[in-house]
Design a protein around this nucleic acid. Structure first.
Lengths: 160, 160
DNA sequence: TTTTAATATAATGGA
DNA sequence: TCCATTATATTAAT
């Protein structure tokens, strides 16, 4: 509480509200939301970077929801949570095919994917994290079912 | 409250608990849950009718989760809601392709689909209902966006 | 890893 | 049948 850092303009309105430029922010307590760099209401119908055009097309769906996404993004900026990115089916397909070969892609491969799929590298990283978790979960589940099957098999034999 | 119907055995324990056979049930107030006809614990690992075998294969996924589904089904029976059926991707694909041609299939077509896809006819019916709702929703949404676009266009011109 | 929460959609009930 | 609503499954984000 009482510990404040020395330096110029530590308590400006802008810094308190978290509105300073990234390079000016102190490195703690105020989360940096780079996805909220939507300058004004005018851009509320620009296309988001997510389902972008070159890879997928992904007809109607993204074309219709993209502006909504963008506005919701502005809203979520206030709430403080990154708006959930919706991957296109082609993006998923490619990510999946990479995952089959390598479920722990290094930074270089992630960057390459990011560029090719028009996604941030950290979106890719998170995706692989979640994908690995999913795989693990399904393994656990099938093991559980195996055990259960054995048990119910024993019960069946007893009842015969 | 005080009005009770005449007839034989109107107040047996079975009827009060809703355990009578379908043809014996009075036609009001107690919902009939035919999907809950799981006789005993033994059948807890039988394969459900849902993702069934001939149409799709739909490898690992349904093979792994089917037993879980079945048990959850037993659980949901107590809760009283039909367990959510997970359509296979092939089933969806076919339903979608039919929907494009005819979004109001008659009973005959529904029955045919039911047979081909190994689903109950009323699952098909519900699917088309929900699908139509989805379509309508997307229409509404795109209209809304069109209006919004016009409005923000006007604003932009004012600000120029 | 676990938890939270956003989204999609199957199921229900009422008109 | 449509509509509004609820429940649930998946999964991005923390």
């Amino acid at each position: 509480m009482a510990a404040h850092r020395s330096g110029p303009s530590a308590f400006t309105i802008a810094s308190i509200l978290g509105l300073s430029r990234p390079e000016q922010r102190s490195n703690m307590s105020i989360p940096y939301r780079p996805w909220a760099d939507v300058p004004s209401t005018q851009n509320c119908h620009t296309v988001t970077a997510d389902g972008s055009l070159e890879v997928a097309a992904e007809e109607e769906k993204s074309a219709i929801t993209a502006p909504v996404e963008s506005c919701r993004r502005t809203l979520n900026w206030y709430i403080g949570r990154r708006p959930r990115t919706a991957f296109s089916s082609l993006q998923i397909e490619i990510l999946e095919s990479v995952f089959q070969v390598n479920s722990y892609p290094g930074i270089d491969l992630r960057e390459e994917l990011a560029q090719k799929l028009h996604l941030d590298e950290d979106r890719i990283q998170i995706w692989f994290q979640n994908r690995r978790a999913k795989l693990k979960r399904s393994h656990r589940e099938s093991q559980f079912l195996m055990v259960k099957k054995v048990i119910s098999g024993l019960q069946g034999r007893d009842q015969q």
